[in-house]
């Protein structure tokens, strides 16, 4: 069994991802070990640079937990996040990194189970990919 524990930065929208993480805690669901949650007021607050810096500074993968489309309290924040992810994907392709390292997941306040399942799936996917070769050493 691999000893590699992928580090995942999970940006969580305050209206969906963060309450979902909270619910996962209430349900005592087990998260993969190496997760760092970053609470943001809206997924639209996440700039492209945050995604790249996370990878540069040591993450193996980045997940953005945002509200379902057409369900953003700030109307277009989740769509903005999605567009910024697409831009980051283009950059990652230019750099030669797998774009799958950065992903968006749409969920709702009560999606504690989905939150954990997504993180587990991501962690398994990153284990197969191996450590991020572009992180600072």
């Amino acid at each position: 069994m691999s000893s590699f524990d992928p580090k995942i930065i999970a940006f969580c929208c305050d209206q969906s991802g963060y309450p979902a993480a909270d619910m996962a805690g209430t349900l005592k669901l087990k998260l993969p070990r190496n997760i760092e949650i970053v609470r943001v007021p809206c997924a639209g607050r996440i700039e492209t640079i945050y995604l790249l810096k996370a990878l540069e500074k040591g993450a193996d993968g980045v997940l953005v937990f945002a509200c379902y489309e057409e369900n953003c309290q700030f109307l277009r924040g989740n769509l903005r996040a999605k567009a910024r992810l697409a831009y980051a994907h283009r950059m990652l392709e230019g750099i030669g990194l797998e774009k799958e390292r950065v992903e968006i997941c749409h969920l709702a306040t009560n999606s504690g189970v989905k939150f954990v399942e997504t993180l587990r799936r991501k962690s398994e996917q990153l284990k197969k990919m191996g450590p991020n070769p572009a992180k600072e050493s």
């Binding site: 700039e47 492209t48 640079i49 790249l52 810096k53 990878l55 540069e56 950059m91 230019g94 750099i95 030669g96 990194l97 070769p133 572009a134 992180k135 600072e136 050493s137």
Partner: peptide
């Protein structure tokens, strides 16, 4: 300034990778 920061990060990662 933002694009400088973004591109710098991308360049550093690309070179770190190789």
């Amino acid at each position: 300034e933002k694009e400088v920061e973004l591109l710098a990060s991308g360049l550093r990662m690309a070179r770190q990778k190789i």
